[in-house]
Design a protein around this nucleic acid. Sequence first.
DNA 1: TAGGCCATCTGGTCCT
DNA 2: AGGACCAGATGGCCTA
Length: 225
Amino acid sequence: MNAGEENLLKSISNDTLLDLTQRYGQSAFGFGPGQVTGSSGGRYPLTPAADFLHGQTGKSNESGGEQTSDDDDSFDPLDPRKRGSGFDDDKHGGPLSKKPKEQRSLRLSINARERRRMHDLNDALDGLRSVIPYAHSPSVRKLSKIATLLLAKNYILMQAQALEEMRRLVAYLNQGQTINSPIPTALAPFGQAAVYPFTGSALATHADKYSGTTASLFKHHNDKP
DNA sequence: TAGGCCATCTGGTCCT
DNA sequence: AGGACCAGATGGCCTA
């Protein structure tokens, strides 16, 4: 990780997530298993990692499914937004223009596969954006790829920390209960955790610990006219 | 206009 | 051999 990414990561860690918690409330974080949606399709073997991804890669089937010819997909060579470097274009005399038809066909097939692969990757990123806390309104620019990944990482770390503090709180409360009464069954699993005097930080808003602004990350994303 | 972000093409490498 | 994955190159769009 280079220095620039390190700075961005720090800025997200310290500022963004919890500031967003304040801005958008728990509803911004409130997703459950039923809300992580997606198709059940996919072209990938069901490795453990694939099991995790199963049903979460969005339109994998749609983008990678039945299209097998070279010139299909949604790719439009005339769309400047989709053309890229354009070596693959006879009119511009690219390298492929002088290759045998068979090689050109193979190259186009490979290109189409790569496009589908990147589309699947982008679909997965969209799925990730949809479940991490940032404003999803039309007035807010979509998170960049790198910002999405860094934000998701820190969101996971923050949730793990919050979970740990909740466990400590429950353990502490259970400790008090054991003096007068048995541990309630519902809390018993948490009672197995080490019992520490609760620091109280879980009761405080995270913003207390992560005070700051989101300007460092969101100055590029929330000021669209 | 420079810089950020992105889509696409391409050739190489690895895996099944 | 064919497909997946990766990184570099290229060029377009958008914004400060």
